[in-house]
Amino acid sequence: MSSESVFSMFAILPMILVVVYGLFILMGLYALYLIIKFLIRAIAALDIYLEEKRNGRF
């Protein structure tokens, strides 16, 4: 193995890690978006449920 190929491998490795870290950050942000969207719907459903219970419909 020549010294030039070793140096190019060490130059490429940090770029690959940056891409992987970026993908993990994007997946985390998307998961956060989905959780917030779910919680908003859950709160709305709970409001509807409580309103029905207060009016004695069930």
Score class of each variant (00 low, 15 high):
residue 17 L to Y: 14
residue 5 S to H: 06
residue 54 R to D: 01
residue 35 I to E: 00
residue 34 L to C: 05
residue 48 I to T: 14
residue 11 A to C: 09
residue 10 F to E: 11
residue 21 Y to I: 15
residue 41 R to T: 04
residue 5 S to F: 07
residue 13 L to V: 12
residue 27 M to Q: 13
residue 51 E to S: 10
residue 12 I to F: 09
residue 30 Y to C: 02
residue 57 R to I: 15
residue 25 I to W: 04
residue 51 E to C: 13
residue 24 F to Q: 09
residue 23 L to N: 13
residue 38 F to V: 03
residue 34 L to P: 03
residue 31 A to W: 02
residue 28 G to K: 01
residue 39 L to R: 03
residue 26 L to S: 01
residue 2 S to L: 06
residue 43 I to H: 03
residue 38 F to K: 12
residue 46 L to M: 13
residue 17 L to F: 15
residue 8 S to Q: 06
residue 32 L to G: 01
residue 2 S to Y: 11
residue 30 Y to V: 14
residue 46 L to K: 14
residue 55 N to K: 12
residue 19 V to Q: 05
residue 16 I to V: 14
residue 43 I to T: 12
residue 17 L to A: 13
residue 49 Y to M: 06
residue 42 A to C: 03
residue 54 R to N: 09
residue 9 M to C: 04
residue 42 A to K: 15
residue 26 L to M: 07
residue 52 E to N: 15
residue 47 D to C: 03
residue 46 L to G: 10
residue 41 R to A: 06
residue 55 N to H: 10
residue 24 F to E: 06
residue 36 I to A: 01
residue 24 F to R: 04
residue 23 L to K: 15
residue 31 A to P: 03
residue 44 A to N: 13
residue 41 R to E: 14
residue 32 L to A: 02
residue 58 F to H: 09
residue 44 A to I: 08
residue 48 I to L: 15
